[in-house]
Amino acid sequence: MKARLNILGRKHNIVSVEVQDPETGERKHFYDSEEFSFMPEDKTADLANCIESPIYEARIVEDLNQLIVDSRDHLKDLGNQIIQEALVHNGLPFGDSALPSLAKEYKEHSDYIDGVASALEVVKRDNYE
């Protein structure tokens, strides 16, 4: 996949970039290794994998955080449904009780939240190392 630059809705392939060293102020030019394979290795880079977007990554973190909040709210609702079901049937899952299916959904959703939280940790760790 090519690195792209979106300017006013038009997407342009990034084939080279000029960068500035933050410490020395020295400027260097790098070319996409796929487009410019004939150039020396120290002048080329796989730009699709090298270019980072802190804003995009921050959005991913925000989205994952919101997903966790929403999922925990859903888990609370499931917990309340389980409590209500247990009260209606005096804690015994007889008859047409929905208790077993609610308990299963509660467990699965809890595992889902753990998975999203793990993904969030990975994204944060990759952004701050």
Rank of each mutant, 00 (worst) to 15 (best):
K2E: 10
K2T: 11
R4H: 14
R4V: 15
L5G: 11
N6W: 09
I7R: 15
I7L: 15
L8A: 15
G9L: 14
R10K: 15
R10C: 08
R10S: 14
H12M: 10
N13H: 07
I14R: 04
V15G: 04
V15D: 09
V17D: 05
V17Q: 01
E18M: 06
E18Y: 02
E18F: 01
E18V: 13
Q20D: 01
Q20R: 14
P22M: 03
E23R: 05
E23I: 05
E26F: 10
R27F: 03
K28Q: 06
H29M: 13
H29S: 12
F30V: 01
F30R: 01
Y31K: 02
Y31V: 00
S33Y: 01
E34I: 13
E34W: 08
E35Y: 08
F36P: 02
S37T: 09
F38C: 01
M39V: 06
P40V: 05
D42G: 00
D42K: 12
D42A: 06
T44A: 05
T44F: 05
A45E: 03
D46G: 07
D46Y: 12
L47P: 04
N49F: 03
N49C: 01
C50Y: 11
C50M: 14
I51L: 15
I51T: 10
I51K: 12
E52N: 14
E52H: 15
S53W: 11
S53P: 08
S53H: 12
P54G: 09
P54H: 11
Y56N: 14
E57L: 11
E57I: 13
A58M: 05
R59I: 04
V61P: 04
V61Y: 06
E62S: 11
E62C: 04
E62V: 05
D63Y: 09
D63N: 13
L64R: 06
L64E: 07
I68C: 03
V69I: 15
D73L: 13
L75N: 04
K76I: 10
L78Q: 02
L78E: 00
G79D: 08
G79N: 10
G79E: 06
N80Y: 03
Q81P: 00
Q81F: 01
I82T: 04
I82C: 02
I82A: 03
Q84Y: 13
E85W: 08
L87E: 13
V88C: 00
H89R: 12
H89P: 02
N90Q: 14
G91E: 15
L92I: 15
L92A: 15
P93I: 09
P93S: 14
F94T: 15
G95S: 12
D96L: 09
S97H: 12
A98L: 14
A98R: 15
A98I: 02
L99F: 08
S101F: 07
L102G: 05
L102T: 03
A103C: 08
E105I: 07
Y106T: 01
K107L: 11
E108Q: 13
H109Q: 11
S110N: 04
D111Q: 07
D111E: 14
I113R: 01
I113Q: 00
G115E: 03
V116Y: 02
A117L: 00
L120D: 06
L120M: 12
E121D: 14
E121N: 11
V122N: 09
V123T: 10
V123L: 03
K124Q: 10
K124V: 13
R125N: 12
R125W: 05
R125P: 01
R125V: 01
D126A: 10
D126Q: 12
D126C: 05
Y128E: 10
E129K: 04
E129I: 04
